[in-house]
Design a protein around this nucleic acid. Structure first.
Length: 748
DNA sequence: TCGACGATCGTTTTT
DNA sequence: CGATCGTCGA
């Protein structure tokens, strides 16, 4: 096998197949190429059976790419190769081993919104108002436990994680787990912890898998959480051929439980581990790589890599300062136009932002400029209400214990079964320890015995119809009707289609189209997998949330818009990083929560920078509408962390001095709302008081004039010289806070 | 049961 | 600003 296309380190990563190894693969270092070669090498040179390999990734996209590329390189049967996501791997194993854990093979997988719904019902049942305890908080607590590999009776000794069983939330967690078990369901985290449980309670099962997988590979290792680490460690225990690949500088999911310690402590866990660094970047210009390197070097939580490149120096980074968010978007559009005039195709360009809500203005500007674009991410197809509704019907048919699905659609479309009736049915289910489906069946089949559930005749007759058509669909499924036939049946007999057709508004029409699209998806699935049924279809879509795939999305001739999180793993010739302002990027939340969070934001910034191959534009705006208010946040600290020599700074429109007049002529209605920043607390606490600060020109008590508010007095001033935040009391009594260098202030 | 209306409160989201 | 949620009245 020819490995000449690889550099020295890459080759070592390929050929060093035995024992634990961690590959620290920097951005653009040819990671996928290396991994693909490694697997090919194992298969072709070392004659390892595909059956004995396991490669775990985080996204379906990554798994698919790797599989495709290996398929092209290798002649042996790739079909048996396990290259899959953590979650899909676990789901598959749990379906085969379901009986051990008292699950049925047909368990459903709950996504985040369904988990949240379960938490809500638990809170309700306990009579806790959502105002007092937000379901989100509870869910976060539960996820945190699961991220650390906890399951209800797990002994966490020696796990470096303490569980407070006295916490009221812990009780709710137990409730939650019971609820899911009753529904024959698992959430995302539960897929992982259930496998850990399986391994710990049934060592013989574990042994089977340990002996099967001779070679383990974990991609995006920096994003693993403790549970996943546990799982992999267990699997690798006997053969010890575990290769993990990651980049601590691209760890941007710690808020989702990714534990950077998995990387930082790898050598402690495997003391004979080999550590390899892939530090040559093949993607970006020298300017970009060195600038990004300078920024990330400020982080303390790293193993430390020094990326370098043989690529040419390239263009300077463009830092672009705009007046308003609108103007920023217009700049992006104009610049894209320019690039396009120079014959650069649109699909080589991407616009990044920190939060999804920022896409709106960019979209407006691009649309106005007639630039084709697509928004990557955002509202996903399978998260749309109508899709979730129909899928809830499907879920009931597949797994009638799924009471959550029943509650979701029992009155959609309206059947006159309101909250009160639903409550009665749920109560009965809890009381008799049965599922809602059983209760419904009983009410319909033995109305006499169930008279104590006081339901109106109208409700009873609706229920009867509901039970009947679900039952029919189940029968159809069992006798082998095709998934798409069953889907059509549900769509029409539920009355859902009719409900949408009846209301003729634009929105309903779009929904009908989506439901037809769902039908197509099912038909396609059916054709591709004739042996599989609705259950498997459901699993694919809950575990693969990729956006409704239009064919040929690769070279679409469109500019890509996405959050930076969504951009990880991608590359573009021309990249715009927008909204690079304090409180936006880094986000105000991270600023509030301290240095670790800021380091993660810095990694995010690093990821953004290193997506660019040729030209990197970093834009920010002096003023920005946030939560309906105009804010002056000032440029992001990350901009100041880029050494001067790598960038050119460009101001769009006028300078600071004539700002207020510019503002006035810009868009009057908008600036009418001009008001103080909402983040009144000092966000800069962290670095606000070095021992000797140079004298600020904004002293307390000083009288000033503000371009818009008029005359006032400085009440307080904090922050270093040149970067002060001043609190000013105006003549009308209003107190407002500004960043001095951006506010139109004149000292009197 | 269901809609309308006002209060509230805002990241990121591979699975 | 805008989505989401809870309350209230018909």
């Amino acid at each position: 096998m020819n490995l000449n296309h690889l550099n020295l380190q890459q080759r070592e990563a390929v050929q060093n197949i035995n024992g634990p190894m961690m590959i620290l693969a920097g951005a653009g270092s040819g990671k996928t190429r290396t991994l693909v070669s490694r697997i090919s090498y194992l298969l072709e040179e070392k004659n390892i059976s595909p059956f004995q390999l396991l490669a775990l990734t985080f996204s379906n996209k990554a798994a698919k790419e790797m599989r495709d590329r290996i398929g092209r390189e290798v002649s042996c049967d790739v079909g048996a190769l396990q290259i899959t996501t953590f979650h899909a791997f676990c789901a598959k194993m749990l379906r085969t081993e379901a009986q051990y854990l008292g699950l049925s093979k047909s368990f459903t997988i709950y996504d985040g919104s369904e988990s949240k719904a379960v938490v809500k019902t638990i809170l309700q049942r306990r009579g806790i108002s959502q105002k007092d305890v937000s379901p989100f908080e509870v869910l976060y607590f539960i996820e945190d436990l699961k991220n650390h590999g906890h399951y209800p009776d797990r002994n966490m000794e020696g796990k470096d994680y303490t569980v407070d069983t006295a916490d009221m939330f812990f009780d709710m967690y137990l409730d939650y787990e019971r609820e899911l078990h009753k529904a024959n369901a698992l959430d995302f985290g539960g897929l992982i912890t259930a496998v850990i449980q399986l391994f710990e309670k049934f060592p013989d099962v574990l042994l089977r898998y340990q002996e099967r997988f001779h070679y383990l590979l974990v991609d995006e290792y920096q994003d693993t959480n403790r549970a996943q680490f546990d799982l992999v460690t267990k699997l690798a225990q006997i053969k010890r051929n575990i290769c993990v690949v990651g980049d601590e500088d691209q760890s941007i999911y710690s808020w989702r439980g990714a534990d950077i310690r998995n990387i930082l402590d790898f050598e402690e866990v495997y003391n004979d581990a080999r550590i390899l660094k892939l530090e040559q970047n093949y993607r970006s210009s020298k300017n970009i790589i060195e600038a990004a390197g300078a920024v990330i070097s400020r982080n303390t939580q790293r193993k430390g890599k020094d990326m370098w490149t043989d690529n040419p120096e390239g263009e300077s980074i463009e830092i672009v300062e705009c007046h308003s968010d609108k103007e920023e978007a217009e700049f992006v559009a104009t610049q894209i136009r320019e690039l396009s005039k120079d014959k650069h195709p649109y699909d080589e360009m991407a616009v990044f932002y920190r939060t999804n809500s920022q896409s709106r203005l960019i979209e407006d500007a691009l649309r106005k400029a007639n630039i084709p674009y697509r928004v990557v991410g955002g509202i996903k197809f399978y998260e749309r209400k109508e899709i979730k509704d129909l899928l809830a019907y499907v879920r009931i048919v597949v797994n009638d214990k799924d009471s959550l699905a029943i509650s979701r659609i029992i009155n959609v479309p309206a059947r006159g079964i309101g909250a009160t009736s639903l409550r009665k049915i749920e109560d009965e289910a809890v009381k008799t320890e049965s599922t809602m489906w059983e209760v419904l069946q009983n009410i319909v089949d033995n109305p006499e015995e169930y008279k104590h559930i006081r339901l109106t005749t109208r409700v009873k007759s609706s229920l009867s119809h509901f039970v009947q058509f679900i039952h029919d669909a189940k029968v159809a499924m069992n006798k082998g009707d095709s998934p798409s036939d069953i889907y059509e049946k549900l769509l029409h007999e539920s009355g859902y289609y009719e409900m949408l057709r009846a209301s003729k508004d634009y929105e309903s029409m779009a929904r009908i189209e989506n439901l037809e699209e769902l039908g197509n998806a099912i038909s396609q699935f059916e054709e591709a997998n004739p042996k599989l049924g609705l259950l498997e279809f459901m699993e694919t879509i809950t575990l693969d949330t990729s956006v409704k795939g239009e064919e040929g999305e690769e070279d679409s001739g469109e500019v890509s818009l996405m959050t930076i999180h969504g951009a990880k793993g991608l590359e573009f010739f021309y990249v715009f990083v927008t909204g690079t302002e304090e409180n936006v990027f880094p986000s105000y939340r991270s600023l509030e929560s301290g240095e670790e969070a800021i380091e993660e934001e810095r990694r995010l910034f690093y990821v953004a920078m290193t997506r660019a191959m040729k030209i990197l534009y970093i834009t920010f705006s002096q003023g920005r509408m946030l939560f309906g208010q105009l804010k002056f946040n000032g440029p992001s600290r990350f901009i100041s962390e880029i050494p001067n020599k790598y960038y050119r700074w460009k101001k769009i429109g006028g300078g600071y001095q004539d700002r207020s007049s510019n503002f006035d002529s810009d868009d009057d209605s908008k600036w009418d709302n001009f008001s103080d920043p909402i983040y009144d607390e000092p966000v800069y606490r962290v670095e606000s008081s070095p021992s000797k600060k140079p004298e600020s020109k904004y002293q307390k008590g000083l009288r000033i004039v503000h371009g818009l508010y008029g005359e006032g007095k400085i009440l307080d001033c904090e922050g270093p010289k040149g970067d002060e935040r001043v609190t000013i009391q105006f003549k009308d009594g209003a107190k407002k806070k500004f960043m001095a260098k951006f506010a139109p202030l004149t000292v009197l």
